[in-house]
Simulated assay, not measured.
Amino acid sequence: MAGSQTVVATGRAAPRTAAKVRTGVWQEQVNTGVSLHFSFEFADPESFAGTITHRSLGELGMFGVACRRHTVYRRPSDLDLGDDAYFLLTLQLAGDKRVTQDGRSATIRAGEFALYDSERPLRLDVGDGYRSVNVKFRKEILGVHDAESFADLAARKFSTEQGIAPVVWSAILSLGSLGPSSGPDGVLVAGNVIDMTATMLRAQAGITAPDRRDERARRLRAVHAYIDERLPDPDLRVEAIAAAHFVSVRYLHMLFRQSGHTVAAWIRHRRIQACKRDLADPVTRAVPAAAIGARWGFVSASHFGQVFKKATGLTPAEFRERALSG
């Protein structure tokens, strides 16, 4: 990285090397790992290589990438697929990437980062020898006022050596060291990191403090984190969620209604996302699809199959075959 080495990526933050992979498999791995739909162009498909790692901690998604040259898009047809609305931050560790969105374009190199918006058309021109660490979080957990302000930061280049950026990125990268046993504590830490990240972006946008009107959004974020931690529990109930956050069931339903979901629909959505990640992971290839459904709280194989097909248009077996075969 340029200048002083204030931010150091741990070995778990991003893969060290890119492995040979078929382009169709790569597309499925990226789209599933990031839980967004992208389109791709490859200058030399036969020699392409790429490795992606991903994990989720509460409301924070984190993925590391090492790959060769190609171009990634969020075209209007990709935007129409109904993904949730996210901000994504990308930190360059090696190589370079050109980020183009909203009529702006910035080339980021090692030690620099940029933000982009999942709801707007996007182009990422990735160079050879590329390595990056990326995080994503849904816009609604920030609140509408921060979300509107941060959108103007898309496709602008920022340094990890300015302001509080070194502290924030060091915290983000350290999350890669958290093991599965971190449990609720890890989810809490991830929530704190999102708060730190929002503070960093407010500073870049010239905002001195969060808007008090966004308090409901922050409370909803805490509920989402609680749900994510307990997705494997088939007995997860609205009453227990409300009690854990010292609110009424009625208030909890109101929070979700304002975000465009019901509580039950949100739990179902997050379970399907978790199952998609596991089904697309080569490491779990030998695990029966029904066992993956049970792992994430589906009470029976038939119920899992019905809900999954309704959400994705494919059975779990069909989704896995497509994801792993390209």
Rank of each mutant, 00 (worst) to 15 (best):
H253W: 04
E239W: 03
A13Q: 05
F38S: 00
S105V: 13
T10R: 10
G305D: 08
R22G: 12
H70Q: 03
S181F: 11
K139G: 02
Y251W: 09
K20C: 04
F38R: 00
G297N: 04
R257Y: 01
R123G: 01
G186S: 09
I52P: 03
A154T: 14
H261A: 02
K276L: 13
Q27A: 15
T262V: 04
A198R: 06
L89A: 15
D84T: 07
E41F: 12
S77Y: 05
A114S: 15
A19D: 11
R285I: 11
G111E: 11
L201E: 12
H245Q: 13
R74V: 08
S174Y: 08
A94S: 14
N31L: 04
T10W: 04
H145A: 05
R131Y: 08
D84H: 07
L115D: 06
V133F: 09
G24Y: 06
A13M: 05
R138Q: 12
G206M: 07
H261R: 09
D185Q: 13
K309M: 08
R219A: 13
A14Q: 10
G163N: 10
T51R: 10
H54M: 02
G313S: 10
D125R: 14
G103K: 01
F137T: 12
P232Q: 14
L124G: 04
D228C: 11
W266L: 14
T23V: 14
C275Q: 04
R219P: 00
T199K: 08
R123H: 01
G50V: 03
A242W: 07
P121A: 12
E46T: 13
E28H: 13
P232D: 08
G95A: 10
P316A: 03
A289F: 00
R271Y: 06
A9T: 08
A2D: 09
D78Y: 04
D96L: 06
A203I: 04
I194N: 09
Q273V: 14
A66D: 00
V287F: 01
K309E: 12
Q204H: 09
S149E: 14
S170V: 07
T160I: 15
A147L: 09
S132T: 14
V34D: 05
A311P: 02
M1C: 05
H303F: 06
G50S: 09
D233G: 06
F256N: 01
V72E: 15
Q273M: 13
V238W: 00
E59N: 15
A243K: 13
R120G: 01
A301F: 01
